[in-house]
Design a binder for these strands. Structure first.
Length: 701
RNA sequence: GGGCGUUUAGCUCAGUGGUAGAGCGUCUCGUUUACACCGAGAAGGCCGUAGGUUCAAUCCCUACAACGCCCACCA
């Protein structure tokens, strides 16, 4: 006999995420439980993640969605497991990136930042920041992110700025920050220096020119820098040139004082030959020209041979300057190259030209060609800091997950150079010294994130409770840019590594294996997925594919599968609720009576253990597969079908009801970190559970 | 140049030293007290190639190939 539907417990026949999600999120926010201070007590152990702050340059992409979903899974599970749980959110001012984004919008109105002036331009960026910061926050909420918004930080808010200042002055006092004129990476479009990590490489097919230098011939890909040559270098062990080392030789060269309108003329110049290991006897002719002002290697040769003069021939605008001579002055690099090649050919100085493939250095923010040039910049000494950072990982104080990234991390630290920390842009933290207009590399402030967000340099309660934090989650692309620098900063300022685990998540690619990118039009907007499938389904689809550190070739079917699963949970709950008597009181683990009862309880115990272990081990995809499999195939397909028969038998029906309820309730807890909305909504309808949110229910053991 | 990763069903991916699995898709049957966003079942795989270790290899080892990523001053 079919039971009468329990009128108090009836749910609509299908789960509707649109109607549910916003309301549920508001309930959570109102509860205050995202804030550890308001969580039910007692909670002895803390668990803290400082959120990798999204840039204020745009909206969220799939990488964010993955990153924040798996962080949220961790946070929700720990919160339920009784930890004093804090997920601290924020945004990053993202120096060059944001400045460029705002400049781009101005360009549409045909205005440059110089037209506006510094003050007005910075005001414009702040307006932009307000607007995009809010968009991002709202998108994170849509994703279900259970972060403590009351503690939200921005890398340029007042207190954070104090932290940056304190950190800089600390290093300065130690003598680790110095100003120096060195050859650095320069973006001629952004008009700023960049660190080694802020350049990208692209293969380019170019030419390789063999130029006559008096008795010698040498190869170069950049003949225009010849105008800044101040020496030649050969390997001291190279027998061919041994006798030349330390001597000055006379060579015929182009007379750059002849105006471009006139035919080129020869001029005799004298140039010194030095012996240096950087010259490889087996490459080209074994002779290299030394242009210290425009080549990083050549600058290092200069450092080993300080008697070599330096002549800067390319300006910060990327054009040849007065030192290049009237013949070339004002030409950009490409034009100058064309001109000088032409001139040398005319004068018989060009021996031959070959095809050549090499890697071109590009700005990681705007894609323009990087021009190495001599410039006065501020540097932070890396020696002691790099060593600290390496030790943290070597001693196992900080662990990477997956472990393979430790090698990448250590390898970079081994070959590290001093960090160029000054930038010539307008948007950023001003260097806190008199008479300097430069701002700091945006990563200088990001490096302080795990403790500056908790109140450093003040000695706050939050720092005491939550530092060191537990996990940081990010893309592999910023292991060196960010993780390394947070680790040595944490050790330097807090004497403790900032987190125990670096969780390097997968990269989401298109189904074809391409990088998702806005400009290529290959990106997917997670908000669109949420709008068509619901947040739980989107989170499900993402986590379902997050099987390990492997890249994910995105396939949307899994989001659809998530939508179906949400509905399956909903309907299983409907079925159970229809069966339940109105006065049922949840009373712990029920005793099994039948073989089916025993089996399902045993399987629940197993899946509980597996899911817990897998979440703790950062195996989110496998954890979700397990609970999915249990709930759908063991509980719905098998047990509910058995229960339908058992319910008819009056000697068994009461016990069966209890088991149905118990399995459902425990499953909802296990599913909640992955699919928080649908589980919370159902939880509201369960009898005698009206007071507590699933959000803070006790995680099953 | 150095390092790393991937290669399993039509697609996206799990997995194990001993008869190969999931989701989606396809096909057949099914309106039974939740759910057709469902149920029962089926088809579909020399587990990249070639060697080796082993009683036994998709799994361990070696080489190769394809694709992808990171690092690097080769002018």
């Amino acid at each position: 006999m079919p039971k009468k539907s329990n009128p108090k417990n009836n749910l609509p026949p299908a789960y509707n995420p649109k109607e549910t999600e916003e309301k549920i999120y508001q309930t959570w926010e109102k509860s205050g439980f995202f804030n550890p201070d308001k969580l039910p007590k007692p909670r002895k152990k803390s668990f803290c993640i400082t959120m990798a702050p999204p840039n204020v340059t745009g909206s969220l992409h799939m990488g964010h969605a993955l990153e924040y979903t798996i962080s949220d899974v961790l946070i929700r599970q720990k919160r339920m497991a009784g930890f004093l749980t804090l997920w601290l959110p924020g945004t990053d001012h993202a120096g060059i990136a944001t400045q460029n984004a705002v400049e781009k919008t101005l360009r549409k109105e045909n205005i440059s930042r110089h037209d506006l002036g510094k003050e007005k331009f910075i005001k414009k960026i702040w307006e932009w920041k307000e607007q995009y910061g809010n968009i991002i926050t709202n998108q994170l909420k849509k994703l279900g992110v259970s972060a403590d918004w009351t503690r939200s930080r921005f890398t340029m808010d007042q207190e954070y700025t104090e932290a940056v200042r304190a950190a800089f002055l600390h290093y300065h006092k130690k003598g680790w920050i110095y100003e120096g004129e060195r050859t650095i990476n320069w973006c001629t479009r952004c008009r700023t220096s960049l660190s080694d990590l802020e350049i990208e490489h692209r293969e380019e097919h170019g030419k390789f020119y063999y130029i006559k230098y008096g008795p010698l011939t040498l190869g170069t890909a950049r003949p225009e820098t010849k105008l800044g040559d101040t020496a030649l270098a050969v390997n001291p062990k190279d027998k061919r040139y041994k006798q030349l080392v330390g001597k000055e030789i006379s060579i015929q060269s182009v007379d750059s004082s002849v105006p471009r309108e006139n035919p080129p003329k020869l001029k005799e110049i004298k140039i010194k030959v030095v012996g240096d290991e950087a010259a490889d006897p087996n490459f080209g002719t074994g002779v290299i020209k030394v242009t210290p002002a425009h080549d990083l290697t050549d600058f290092e040769i200069y450092q080993r041979h300080p008697e070599i003069p330096i002549v800067k021939v390319i300006g910060e605008n990327g054009r040849m300057n007065e030192n290049a001579g009237v013949r070339y002055e004002g030409l950009n690099v490409v034009e100058a190259r064309k001109q000088i090649v032409h001139d040398m050919e005319q004068l018989g100085l060009m021996e031959k030209i070959e095809d050549y493939t090499h890697n071109l250095a590009l700005c990681y923010r705007c894609g323009s060609v990087i021009e190495p040039l001599l410039s006065k910049q501020w540097f932070l000494k890396m020696g002691a800091l790099a060593q600290k950072a390496a030790e943290a990982v070597l001693k196992g104080k900080t662990k990477f997950h997956p472990k393979k990234w430790e090698k990448v991390y250590l390898n970079w630290l081994k070959n590290i150079k001093d960090w160029t920390i000054s930038r010539q842009i307008w948007w950023g933290h001003k260097i806190p010294l008199e008479g300097v207009d430069d701002v700091l590399d945006t990563w200088f402030s990001s490096a302080l994130w795990p403790f500056a967000t908790l109140g450093w340099p003040k000695k706050t309660k939050d720092l005491q409770k939550f530092y060191p934090t537990d996990v940081i989650t990010n893309d592999r692309g910023i292991i060196n840019l960010w993780d390394t620098r947070m680790i040595f900063s944490g050790l330097e300022f807090m004497n403790k590594e900032p987190f125990k685990t670096v969780l390097v998540h997968a990269t989401i690619l298109t189904k074809e294996g391409q990088r998702m990118s806005k400009s290529l039009g290959t990106g997917i907007d997670p908000i669109n997925l949420i709008n068509s499938y619901g947040t739980d389904a989107t989170r499900f689809g993402i986590v379902w594919q997050a099987m390990g550190g492997q890249d994910i070739r995105w396939s949307e079917e899994h989001v659809n599968a998530g939508r179906k699963f949400a509905n399956k949970i909903w309907n299983a709950a409907r079925f159970v609720l229809i069966q339940l008597p109105l006065d049922l009181k949840p009373s712990g683990k029920p005793k099994p009576k039948t073989a089916a009862d025993k089996k399902i309880l045993k399987e629940l115990a197993e899946v509980t253990k597996k899911v817990t272990q897998k979440i703790e081990g950062c195996e989110f995809g496998p954890a979700l597969h397990d609970i999915y499999d249990f709930f759908w195939h063991s509980f719905c397909d098998k047990y509910i079908e058995s229960a339908k028969i058992q319910m008819v038998d009056k000697t068994k029906s009461a016990d069966t009801e209890k088991i149905l309820f118990y399995i459902l309730a425990e499953s909802l807890k296990l599913i909640h970190p992955f699919m928080p909305f649908v589980t919370e909504e159902i939880w509201k309808h369960l009898p005698s559970n009206n007071k507590k949110l699933l959000l803070v229910e006790k995680w099953p053991k």
